[in-house]
Simulated assay, not measured.
Amino acid sequence: MSTSPTPRRPFLLAAAIAVGPLAGAVWHLVENVGLPRIDAAVYLAQVAANRDTYALSTVLYMIFVACFIPIGLAVMRVLHGRAPLAGTISGLLFALAGALGLVVSGMRPVVLGLAPEGGVAAEAIAAYQRYQASPWFDWVMLPMLASVVIGLVVLAAAILRTGVLPRWSAVLLVVGFILSSGEFPLAVTIVGGLVQLAGFIPLAGRLVAIAEPEAEPAALV
Rank of each mutant, 00 (worst) to 15 (best):
P10S: 12
F11P: 06
L12K: 09
L13F: 14
A15T: 09
A15Q: 07
A16P: 06
I17E: 11
V19K: 06
V19L: 14
G20Y: 12
G20H: 04
G20T: 14
P21V: 11
P21W: 13
P21L: 11
L22W: 05
L22K: 06
A23E: 07
A23P: 03
G24W: 10
A25G: 07
A25R: 06
V26S: 07
V26M: 05
W27L: 10
W27S: 13
H28L: 10
L29K: 07
L29Y: 14
L29G: 15
V30P: 02
V30C: 03
V30L: 04
E31F: 15
E31N: 14
N32D: 13
L35M: 15
I38F: 01
I38E: 08
I38A: 01
A40W: 01
A40I: 05
A41T: 08
Y43W: 08
Y43D: 00
L44C: 01
L44F: 02
L44S: 01
A45C: 03
A45P: 04
A45S: 14
Q46C: 02
Q46W: 01
Q46Y: 02
V47Y: 04
V47K: 02
V47Q: 05
A48W: 03
A48T: 04
A48C: 08
A49E: 09
A49Q: 11
A49S: 08
A49P: 03
R51F: 03
D52K: 03
T53G: 01
Y54C: 01
A55Y: 00
A55N: 02
A55E: 04
L56C: 00
L56P: 00
S57D: 04
S57M: 03
S57R: 00
S57C: 00
S57H: 00
S57P: 00
T58Y: 01
T58D: 00
T58G: 04
T58I: 01
V59D: 00
V59G: 00
L60S: 02
L60K: 00
Y61N: 12
M62G: 14
M62V: 13
I63S: 03
I63Q: 01
F64N: 14
F64P: 04
V65C: 09
V65Y: 08
C67H: 05
C67L: 08
C67V: 12
F68D: 07
I69P: 10
P70M: 06
P70N: 07
P70C: 04
P70Y: 05
I71G: 04
G72S: 07
L73P: 05
A74H: 08
A74N: 05
A74W: 05
A74E: 10
V75W: 03
M76K: 11
M76C: 09
R77M: 13
R77V: 10
R77L: 12
V78H: 11
V78W: 14
L79M: 15
L79A: 14
L79W: 11
H80T: 10
H80N: 12
H80K: 15
A86F: 09
A86I: 11
